[in-house]
């Protein structure tokens, strides 16, 4: 996985709460078997509305999504993360994330930055006054900055932060503990079911 340190890009205010993964990418777009090409599915139903924010020229090249609380609830589809990445997003900022979405983001290399609800409002206010304004998200210092005066901290679990900063592969990390897995397996009770 690529290392992640800091990102600066156009902020996109998405002023809704409870944006579930069915909204981020409807299920009909999940049938692809490749790991890329999910950008068409991103917010597919909402993008049919010409007024939807991503249809505005100003936000077309947005890379930092600033969304209402409970972003990414619902289905476990990692395609939601891939669709955001394939479209060009590097960061999602919200005051609350669905657990599985947040986990998937960390695995796939999309930064899910959790901030206080007031910070989301401040960022929305900033973007309202400065459409197309840029937001910087620094993973090293765990800060979000925008404009001249806005500087706030964000939360991310320390393990995910370390992995992203160092570009570590999660599976390799687990495989480095193979001896412990082998030893655990030797202790499993005989009555545990098997499929073969």
């Amino acid at each position: 996985m690529d290392q992640y340190t800091t990102h600066t890009g156009v902020g996109v205010p998405l002023k809704r709460s409870d944006i579930d993964t069915d909204q981020i990418i409807p299920a009909v777009y999940l049938k692809r078997i490749s790991r890329s090409g999910f950008e068409d599915g991103l917010f597919a139903n909402w993008r049919k509305d010409p007024e939807f924010i991503l249809n505005s020229e100003v936000y077309k090249n947005g890379t930092v999504l600033v969304a209402g609380p409970d972003f990414g609830t619902g289905s476990s589809r990692e395609h939601a993360v891939w669709a955001l990445q394939d479209y060009g997003f590097k960061v999602v900022i919200s005051s609350r994330f669905g657990d599985i979405f947040r986990g998937n983001s960390g695995k796939a290399g999309l930064l899910a930055a959790q901030v206080d609800e007031k910070v989301v409002q401040k960022l929305w206010d900033y973007l309202d006054h400065t459409p197309g304004g840029q937001i910087t998200v620094d993973l090293e210092t765990q800060t979000v900055t925008a404009g001249d005066s806005l500087k706030e901290s964000f939360e991310i679990d320390p393990h995910t932060r370390t992995r992203l900063l160092n570009g570590l592969d999660d599976i390799s990390l687990t495989l480095s503990h193979d001896a412990e897995i082998v030893s655990y397996e030797a202790s499993r009770p005989a009555w545990k079911p098997t499929t073969l």
Binding site: S76, I100, G103, N104, K107, A108, D170, T174, L175, I181
Partner: peptide
């Protein structure tokens, strides 16, 4: 519990999963 595709790969490869 439900997992994403990266974790599916993780469990296939290791039969284990890091979880807080």
């Amino acid at each position: 519990f439900g997992i994403g595709t990266s974790e599916v790969e993780h469990v296939l490869a290791t039969q284990a999963l890091p979880q807080a």
